[in-house]
Structure formats: C-alpha cells, structure tokens
C-alpha cells in the first residue's frame, strides 16, 4: 500500500505545472508557480503519453475527474442537461493534456483552453492532439504557453468558462490563495471551479516525504514541499470568505483512492486521506 502511494506521489509530481527557472529561459511567462528547482520534469515530458509510462495511474484517474465534474454540474437545482455543444473549459496547468483532450472530446463541450507554463510540456500536448482529427476541429481545443496571470481578464460572460479545472496543481503553488483569487474572474456565473490535490496529513507525509524521498528515493530529496499541500478544510474556509461562491450547498468534495487491483475509487468523506476532488460554484 505504501509503495503504491509512493509511486502515485511520484506520478502526481510528473503532472505538475512546471515551475521554471528564470536563468534557463527569458521568454517564460510570469508564474504563480513556486520557483523550486524542478527542471528535470521537463525532461520527462516525452513520457507523458506512454501507455505504461509513469503517468499511467493519472490516465486511469482521468474518467473520475469527469464523473466528479458531472456530479457538480448537475447538483444545482437550476442545472440544465448539457447535451449540446455548450460547455467551455479552462484547464489551468494542463500538462501534456490528459484531461484537456478528454474534455475536448465530450459531446457537451464547445471549447477547451489548456494553459501550461512549461514550453516543453505544452509542446508535447500540442503534438499529441495532432493524433486525433476531432481535436483539430477549429475552435475545439486551444493550448497556450501561459500562466493564469498572462491571460487577459474576461470582459463579458461569453469569454468566461463553465468549468475552470486545476488538476494536481495546487500543491505546487507557493501561495495558493492569491493564485486561486486570480482564477476566480475566469469562471462564468453558474460555472464551477474544480480541482484535485493532496491533503497535508501524516499519511501523505509518510508516503510522499519519508518513503518517496528519504527511503526509496524515487523522488529526489527536497522535491516535495509537504508544507505546501492544501487541506480541504482550508479550501472550504477560503471559499467561505469569497463573496458569490458556493451558495446553495454548491461546494462539493470527494476523496479519491487508488485501490490496487480495482483502480481509482471515489470515497465520500475521504478527502483527508490523501488525494481528493474539490468543486465550488460561482453564484
């Protein structure tokens, strides 16, 4: 079990938004991502889509992200069925595009924008999308080498998004609160901010710090900053202070656990164990 968790942590890391080093690139966008030395992740960009590569477990987790989003979208009393091509997605820290591509394929999707601060990784995403004619349809999927603060603030509702996703991003942001605040204006009224991250608990300390970095050394020492993990209670508290978010009980959480032999399972009230989903609706 510990081993599984360890490997999983490693995989989560690989899918991180890439903090960039200023010395290596002058064109890298201004970033809200913590400037720790993680440049070796860019070298792993090419393995993003390998079927049995290191990101296999996150490929397997991807369907659950859609199930969680679907449960969010339908939870509000006024929610309508999204059968037609109507939903707009903004995938922040999209990495190689695992979630981004899948969102773009859904029949209910009008447009998906994926942004990613690492040039190597966004190029992997762009190249991979070329393997599917559906994703090349004009207007369906757009990748930008950018951070959230590089995007122009939406001036009207049509420029906002129904779903803003932050999958496995938050735990690598040094100051999550200002980062989240920058994301909020991009969500349409009635739209959802959806994220997945890891809770800061003794279990995640054992698996990601002690085992992964110190004992098995799957991850180089100092890669993780356990102190940057964000708990569900903290997110709940922060959004509770934001005006116009999460009314009518539209703040949802769900634990997600990898069970060896069975795959990923959503576990209600499992948000304090490790990985969890979090979704909040803009009123």
């Amino acid at each position: 079990m510990a081993l599984r968790h360890t490997s999983l942590r490693n995989f989560c890391l690989l899918l991180r938004s890439q903090p960039h080093s200023r010395s290596t690139s002058t064109s890298t966008p201004r970033s809200s991502v913590s400037p720790i030395e993680l440049s070796h992740f860019s070298a792993l960009a090419s393995s993003w889509w390998e079927p049995h590569g290191s990101s296999r477990l996150l490929h397997l987790m991807n369907p659950l992200r859609h199930e969680f989003i679907a449960s969010c979208l339908t939870s509000h009393p006024t929610a309508s069925k999204h059968n037609t091509k109507s939903l707009r997605y903004l995938d922040v820290g999209c990495g190689g595009g695992i979630f981004t591509e899948s969102a773009a394929r859904l029949p209910s999707t009008a447009k998906v924008v994926g942004i990613e601060p690492s040039r190597e990784v966004i190029n992997v995403a762009r190249a991979h999308a070329c393997q599917d004619s559906m994703l090349l349809e004009p207007g369906r999927l757009e990748y930008k080498h950018a951070c959230i603060e590089d995007l122009a603030l939406p001036q009207k509702v049509e420029e906002q998004f129904d779903v803003l996703s932050l999958f496995e991003v938050l735990e690598h942001i040094e100051k999550p609160a200002p980062f989240l605040a920058k994301c909020l204006p991009f969500v349409k009224p009635g739209g959802w901010l959806v994220l997945s991250t890891i809770a800061r608990t003794w279990t995640s300390w054992v698996t990601t710090k002690l085992v992964a970095e110190d004992l098995l050394r799957i991850v180089p020492r100092g890669t993780h900053d356990w102190g940057q993990y964000v708990n569900e209670r903290e997110l709940r508290g922060w959004f509770g202070k934001q005006d116009g978010w999460g009314r009518d009980g539209c703040l949802r959480t769900m634990g997600v656990v990898y069970v060896p032999g069975l795959g990923w399972r959503m576990v209600e009230r499992g948000e304090s164990w490790g990985n969890y989903f979090f979704g909040v609706r803009k009123d």
Partner: peptide, 14 residues
C-alpha cells in the same frame, strides 16, 4: 461506451 462518455480516445489501448 465508457471511454466515449468520459472523453477517451476509443483506440487507445488503456
């Protein structure tokens, strides 16, 4: 069916 309803590419081995 599962793959289509979750945005997957039905040809991908996984």
């Amino acid at each position: 069916e599962y793959s289509v309803s979750h945005g997957g590419d039905i040809g991908v081995q996984g």
